[in-house]
Amino acid sequence: MIRTIATATCILAAGTMAQAQDVRITTFKSESTFSLNGITFTVTRDQNTNAVLQGEFTRTSRACPPHCLQPISLGSGVETFGELEVMSYLETSVSDGIGLLVDARSPQEFAISAIPGSVNVPFITLAAENRFRPDILRALGAVDVAGGAMDFSGAMDLAVYSGGVWSNDAPMAIQNLIEAGYPAEKIHYYRGGMQAWTHVGLSTISSANPG
């Protein structure tokens, strides 16, 4: 036990000295690096230990409805992610080109700040009312089959997030996807969303869609 603590302390000390990094993601992980279609992204945490949240995500209270608290599990077989799972998903599925991290918020919100490597697909565009929804589903890898249905067996894995635990954008997007026939086991839900991501000082990007 003591030996373990000592080892851990040594590693921590070594890490601190080597990289002068005080705020790591986990003890053994200081950054998350992944690539999306040839572009490399690196996620780290803000090294300023005095940093506090600024702007939109300092707000505690948004009107409910529509901004109502969401459950940990959306049910119907959709797995829920925390921050570490999102990073590991980015390093594996997204880097391998078999998964996408989807931001279900509006394009305006997405442009201000988003998780590196994410793609903006506002939940409203996945609603049945959008006549062009099949085009989006095809872009995600669904294939038309006879009778107007779609085959999702080759479709990409999706991890969907929105503003935070108070936002139903991501749950709506997931509900719309499932209604369209997207298999629930291909969908993941990052419940914490932008608020939880920024709350622990993880890197964000501010731009239009990457690329």
Binding site: L36, N37, G38, G97, L100, P107, G117, V119, N120, V121, P122, T125, N130, R131, F132, R133, D135, I136, A139, L140, M156, A208, N209, P210, G211
Partner: peptide, 18 residues
Amino acid sequence: QRESTSQILAGIEAATGQ
């Protein structure tokens, strides 16, 4: 609708390369 969908497709295209 068409305009916003085309922007989204551009985003997905950039990410998937397809």
